[in-house]
Amino acid sequence: MNAVALELDGLAVDFSGFRAVDGVSMAVAHGELRVLLGANGAGKTTLMDLISGKTKSTEGRVYVHGRDVTNQREHKIARAGVGRKFQIPSVFSGLTVRQNLEVAQSGQPGVFANLKMRLDTEAQERLDETLDLIGLTDEAETEAGVLSHGQTQWLELGMLMIQNASVILLDEPTAGMTAGETAKTAEIINRLKGKHTLLVVEHDMAFVRDIAERITVLHLGKVLAEGNVAFIENHPDVKAAYLGKQGIS
């Protein structure tokens, strides 16, 4: 159970002189939920871009379950088991909620493997379960483009579940949510924990306390500290660099 699901080894990217991520090494165990903290420009989103293949790294390696996926093309990394949720929710707006989840079931991603009409019963059941889990059963036949902001975020989470990604990257999953929506999101994320390995970028400290086990703090592209919530909250360097004199409110 304690096998490492995601390992970064000295990962860095150099944007013509500016090192947005500068030698980050970390290991996230299977089933763990890791929160990435850091001020604006600390390199959190860039780190996710490097892991998922959106940006090519200039140094270091990325391993998913021991497999080297460094700088592979995005869909190859996705097939290796990395799922990603973007800061701005991105779903297929012209398709119904059900179709969105059907597409997310990407076990066989080839064109010719998909020249068939429907999913098998087992897959259908999983789809219904997921709909229930994200609370969108009633909206199954609704076009995703008309969902509320919160519902869109949950749909995207549902898509990651059904994609069966072993490592899930979440970039600010509660951005722009109401308190009620945030609570529900925390509930969904807590359910993902254990089965999936999660790496979450988040600013909302109340939410972080709800979900986090371990926190990694980034500062200017480097790892500043790593530990549990209490350790991070009392870490002097973190206070100075990120939280300011007031500490965590």
Partner: peptide, 21 residues
């Protein structure tokens, strides 16, 4: 077919489709 649905998905968000593999 599923492929047709996936095609429409790429129309709505090619990045999302890419990150689904």
């Amino acid at each position: 077919t599923r492929a047709g649905t996936i095609l429409q998905a790429t129309r709505d968000s090619d990045t999302r489709a890419l990150y689904l593999g």
